[in-house]
């Protein structure tokens, strides 16, 4: 338990203690005591679905200010994360190619105010579906990629630049090659926008060929997926792979199938920013992740 206490102390020092959700199915305490993670613990922040450029007074009257508040909230964390990742729908879609680029430029300028300078981006369909990711790549780089950080292999997958919401054979082939270099027990974190599994096909909350990616990942013991798209916290497991959806930073959506239509939950002036937020993901290489959902405004209840 010494390690567990140490971690709590770490969380306290990091200013992220309290209200922590344990989401790993693998058992925090077991791995907290295994001694494998000394010196490697770190955390990163996931922000998602910021939809910069969205307008809709009844859904978010502060649409032009919420992203800046989220950036300020991340900057206010006592201990800064190793990096920040935006899991798609950075901008709200527009048919106007010039306006799309203008929104991307504004978004990029706002998030450049983050104290953390290592920032990763993933495209959402609002960013990349209408031009197959052309503008997105000009501003944010590759649509899919991988990188290593403190013993974890991170893989960013693009399931949106094809408007049919599929990864496509070329990307699946790339994934296969990327995974070939890894040992079966390498910790892998997949970052993507849409759910890779069929969460709720009636609302199109799927990736058409997502199961093929899951099949490739199943050969690895320690895989977790963090995604966005559905504008709410959601946890699901396929086989031994947990999938964790993040809240939005523009408006929340209802739980899958809970209402007849997939329409945004209206803004509640009695509870501003209710249902919006970001998350800290504390990573313990060798099998564990600890998620804490964070409100945009300090002191707001989640």
């Amino acid at each position: 338990m010494t390690h567990l206490i140490d971690r709590r102390k770490f969380l306290h020092l990091a200013g992220i203690g309290g209200g922590v959700a344990f989401v790993s199915g693998l058992g925090f305490d077991v791995f907290a005591a295994d001694g494998l993670t000394d010196g490697l613990d770190f955390y990163f922040v996931q922000l998602s679905d910021t939809h910069w450029g969205f307008k809709g007074e009844d859904k978010n009257p502060d649409a032009a200010g919420t992203l800046q508040k989220a950036v300020a909230a991340v900057n206010a964390l006592d201990k800064q994360p190793d990096f920040v990742v935006f899991t798609g729908d950075l901008t709200h879609t527009t048919d106007d190619a010039q306006e799309r680029r203008r929104r991307m430029a504004e978004f990029k300028a706002i998030v450049s105010e983050l104290k953390v300078k290592q920032v990763k981006f993933i495209p959402g369909e609002h960013d990349a579906s209408l031009d197959k990711g052309e503008a997105y790549q000009a501003f944010f780089g590759d649509l899919h990629y991988s990188f290593n950080h403190k013993g974890i292999h991170f893989i960013a997958l693009d399931n949106v630049s094809d408007p049919a919401a599929q990864l496509g054979q070329a990307q699946l082939d790339w994934l296969k090659v990327d995974l070939q270099a890894l040992a079966a027990n390498t910790p892998i974190v997949v970052l993507t926008h849409r759910p890779l599994f069929d969460l709720y096909a009636k609302w199109d909350w799927t990736t058409r060929d997502g199961q093929q990616a899951i099949d490739l990942l199943m050969a690895f013991e320690n895989v977790v997926v963090f995604y966005g798209h559905i504008h709410q916290e959601h946890h699901h497991v396929t086989g031994h792979i947990p999938h964790h959806a993040a809240k939005s930073l523009i408006f929340p959506l209802p739980a899958p199938g809970s209402v007849p239509k997939r329409v945004p939950i209206p803004w509640d002036s009695a509870k501003p920013y209710n249902g919006l937020g970001f998350r800290n993901i504390e990573a313990y290489p060798w099998k564990n992740y600890r998620i804490e959902e964070k409100a945009i405004i300090k002191g707001e209840t989640l």
Binding site: T93, D95, P163, K202
Partner: peptide, 17 residues
């Protein structure tokens, strides 16, 4: 039974059902 557009087509895509 609900049906919908499943090829992203723009700003109103989510409502195309």
């Amino acid at each position: 039974f609900a049906f919908r557009c499943d090829i992203f087509c723009g700003d109103g895509h989510e409502e195309m059902a």
